[in-house]
Every structure is written in C-alpha cells, then in structure tokens.
Amino acid sequence: MSIQHFRVALIPFFAAFCLPVFAHPETLVKVKDAEDQLGARVGYIELDLNSGKILESFRPEERFPMMSTFKVLLCGAVLSRVDAGQEQLGRRIHYSQNDLVEYSPVTEKHLTDGMTVRELCSAAITMSDNTAANLLLTTIGGPKELTAFLHNMGDHVTRLDRWEPELNEAIPNDERDTTMPAAMATTLRKLLTGELLTLASRQQLIDWMEADKVAGPLLRSALPAGWFIADKSGAGERGSRGIIAALGPDGKPSRIVVIYTTGSQATMDERNRQIAEIGASLIKHW
C-alpha cells in the first residue's frame, strides 16, 4: 500500500482519535458579512469528516447552483462504474471539434489522439474542462443518470439537468442544476469515506481534487503551510461562485467545507476574496 493510499485508508482512524471539535460562531459572522459585502445569498456548511456531524452552517438547506462543483460527483459516478466493471479508466475516447464547448483548455489539445477516461476526469476536476465533463456525462448516460446515481446514494436534493455550459445559467428560483450545502457536503463525505467506492477509487477521487489547479484564489489562499486540501470550485452566471473541499491540518483532511453564493453584482475577484476570507476565519478558529 502506498503512503497516499495509507493516508486515505486511515482518515477515519486518525479522526477518531482527534480531540473533540467545537464550532466557532466567528466564522458564521464572516459568512454573514460576506453576504453584506456581496449583496447576495451565501450558503455555508462545515462537517466533521469522521462523524458527519454538522459543526457550523448557514442557509444549509437553500438551493444554490452547483456550477462546476458537480464534476466531482460526476467522476465519482464514473469511478463507481469502474468498480462495477462497467468502465475502464484506460479506455480512450475520441471526439471532434464539434464536441468542444466553451472553456476546454485540455480537451482542445487532444482532438487528434483523444483522451482516456482517467485523463478526462483529471481534466474535468483539476482544470474544470467543460468538454471533458460533457464527454464523461455521455459515458454514464447524461445528466439524468448522474441525478439517479445521487438518488441511489441517498441524495434526493442534488440534481443535474443540463450539460456544460448551460448548467451554469443560475436563474433565480430555478431548481435545475442545483444542490443544497448540506446535501453536497453529505454526498461528498460519502464519496470520500464511505463504502460506495473502493479504496482505490476513493484515493483516485481525492487525488484529482488535491491536484486542483484553478481554485488557488479561494480556500487555498488562506491555508497555512502543512495543511491538506482537496477541492473543486465552480463559477456561473449572475454572480455565482462555489467551492467544495476536504481539508485539515497535519497533512490530512478532517472536515468537509461547502460554500456557495449566487445573485451578486460583485466582480469575480471580490467573490473570490470573500470566500478566501471565510476560509481564513475557519482556519483561525479551527
């Protein structure tokens, strides 16, 4: 067993022997301040990774656009098919120029040779490549099948209805392509620590998230040296922004954090800054 596999296998073990965790309302004060600064709703939840206990939450059962955070769930569904012998990570998928959609920095470079399922998941999570996500959605049967996968996990809230990039439209009061912070946090925890996926697939999923290259201005910008984070960000229309993450000190994750916002007129930089400040408060009061 590799060191990384050992780390993920012992996530519940280490967490069980940690000192009790206590909620700190100071972080919620910052979440509410972010709402004021952005002029928009902000949803927040913080779960203990081992027990699933909610440590703090704000608007945990209000719907927010998922945006690209759905790509972690998508690759979880792909990995479940791999575990069941219905898919192979090494299978190569070929596609054409007509398949390319807006923001496809990886797939646009491989029109000639195609990409493997493993490479597509890596591109979808680490670079948020939209064509990679659409190609992977095709392998599982489309958005409705991802929703069905989530329902089978016990998540009857999260739903995907459309493809990239239309799913980022974020129309107010439109339930399409949305989740709730509580539902997303619980589902992410199941994917990373539950028995739904094999140990190898859980490790692969967290490795992809740990290698995320496009979430630097968010929670990662607030992390002290030595902290662990595996995350996936999302951005959408109407001032929408979000991030889902597993993080913790001492090089291992111990909490799940989900943050979503929508309806702001603020710039992307300002949305990023507010999420980073929430992260800084979380870490300060850990």
Rank of each mutant, 00 (worst) to 15 (best):
E108Y: 08
G194D: 13
K213V: 11
Y103L: 04
A183H: 12
Y103Q: 04
D99G: 06
P20W: 02
D207R: 12
L19W: 15
L192M: 15
L120D: 00
G141D: 07
N168H: 05
F13A: 14
F70D: 01
L196C: 14
Q37W: 13
G242R: 00
I229M: 08
F58K: 07
V78C: 05
D83Y: 02
S96N: 14
N152Q: 15
G236L: 01
S221Q: 13
A266F: 08
G279V: 05
W208K: 01
L205Y: 02
I125T: 07
A148H: 13
V42Y: 06
A200S: 15
L150S: 06
R238G: 12
T178K: 02
I125L: 12
K144F: 13
E277P: 02
N152Y: 15
P224F: 03
L111K: 08
R271W: 03
L197P: 04
A132V: 00
E102V: 11
M67D: 11
A280Y: 10
S254H: 14
D231M: 04
D129K: 00
W286G: 02
V78A: 06
D231T: 04
V8K: 15
G194L: 09
N152L: 11
I259E: 00
M184V: 09
Y103F: 09
M127V: 12
K252P: 05
I244D: 00
W286E: 02
A280H: 13
N50P: 14
F228W: 05
L89H: 05
R241M: 04
D129E: 01
A84S: 12
A266V: 12
S240Q: 07
I54S: 08
G263R: 07
K53I: 14
I125V: 12
D36L: 15
K30I: 09
Y95E: 01
V117H: 03
R81M: 08
T193I: 14
R118T: 14
D207W: 12
S201F: 04
F14W: 07
I256Y: 03
V82S: 09
R92T: 11
D113E: 14
I206N: 08
L146F: 11
L136W: 00
I93P: 02
M66W: 01
L205D: 00
D161K: 03
K252Q: 11
M180F: 11
W163L: 11
R91C: 04
E210M: 10
A245Y: 01
S221T: 13
G239D: 02
A280W: 11
T193E: 14
T69S: 06
T178G: 03
I278R: 00
G234S: 09
G85W: 06
L136Y: 00
R162V: 02
P224Q: 06
E145H: 14
R220V: 04
D99Q: 13
T187Q: 05
L136V: 08
Y44D: 01
H110A: 08
P253N: 08
D212A: 04
L160F: 10
L197I: 08
E270C: 12
L199Q: 14
R63Q: 09
L192F: 12
A34V: 13
N130R: 00
R41W: 07
V101R: 08
N98A: 14
V258A: 09
G43T: 01
T138M: 13
D231L: 04
F14K: 02
T139C: 09
A266M: 13
D212R: 04
L192R: 01
P253H: 10
Y95P: 04
G114I: 02
G141M: 06
D33V: 14
F17V: 15
E62Y: 08
T179G: 01
V157S: 12
F149Y: 10
W208N: 03
T261A: 09
N272G: 05
P20N: 13
G142M: 02
T262F: 05
C121L: 05
T186C: 15
E46R: 04
D36W: 15
H24R: 13
V257N: 01
I259M: 08
L74M: 09
M184C: 06
R118I: 10
A124H: 00
Q86W: 10
R162P: 01
V31W: 03
E108Q: 10
T69P: 04
D83W: 02
T69Q: 01
D174I: 03
A211H: 14
I275G: 01
T178M: 03
V117G: 02
T138A: 15
L136I: 09
R41A: 10
L47S: 06
K232D: 00
A132K: 00
P249T: 08
T198G: 11
F149G: 05
V101P: 02
E35Q: 08
T116W: 02
L192V: 10
A182S: 13
W163M: 13
P224Y: 04
L79C: 04
T178P: 00
H5K: 14
A225T: 14
T147C: 09
G142W: 01
V72F: 03
M115Q: 07
G52P: 04
K71E: 00
L223V: 13
L111G: 06
I45N: 03
Y95R: 01
M67I: 07
E35C: 05
V78S: 03
H285I: 04
K232I: 00
H156T: 12
V101Y: 08
L55P: 02
S281Y: 15
R159P: 00
R176E: 07
S221C: 11
S264W: 04
N173P: 07
K232A: 01
H151C: 10
F228K: 08
L197E: 04
R255A: 04
I3T: 10
T112K: 15
M66N: 02
M1G: 00
I243P: 00
T262W: 08
K190R: 14
V117F: 04
S2V: 08
P12G: 11
F228I: 08
D36F: 15
L89W: 06
F70N: 05
G142K: 04
F64K: 01
L146D: 00
L199S: 11
L120F: 04
V82W: 07
T107E: 01
G142F: 01
L146A: 06
R92G: 06
V82Q: 06
L167P: 04
E169P: 05
A225C: 13
K144L: 13
V72P: 13
A215I: 03
P249E: 08
V117M: 10
M127H: 08
F13M: 15
G114Y: 05
M180S: 15
G263S: 08
V157R: 12
L196N: 15
P165M: 07
G154K: 07
I125N: 03
R159D: 06
D48M: 06
E145F: 10
A77H: 10
S2N: 14
A124G: 07
S122I: 13
A280D: 14
M66D: 00
I259A: 04
T267Q: 13
M153V: 11
A182R: 14
G39A: 14
H94S: 12
L100Q: 05
V31P: 01
P20H: 10
L188E: 01
L191E: 03
E164H: 01
G43A: 08
N173D: 15
S264P: 03
L219S: 04
I54V: 15
H285L: 09
D161I: 04
P65S: 05
A211F: 09
A230F: 02
I3D: 08
A40Q: 09
F22N: 10
H5I: 08
Q274T: 15
T147F: 02
V21W: 05
E145S: 12
L89V: 06
A170P: 08
A148I: 13
L282G: 03
S122D: 15
Q204V: 11
I45P: 00
L282I: 12
A225K: 15
I275Y: 05
A276P: 01
L55K: 08
T116I: 06
S221H: 12
E169D: 13
P12M: 14
M209F: 03
A123T: 05
M67C: 14
A211R: 14
Y44M: 09
T131V: 05
I11G: 08
I140W: 03
L28Q: 08
S221P: 09
D36V: 14
I278E: 00
E169Y: 11
L219H: 03
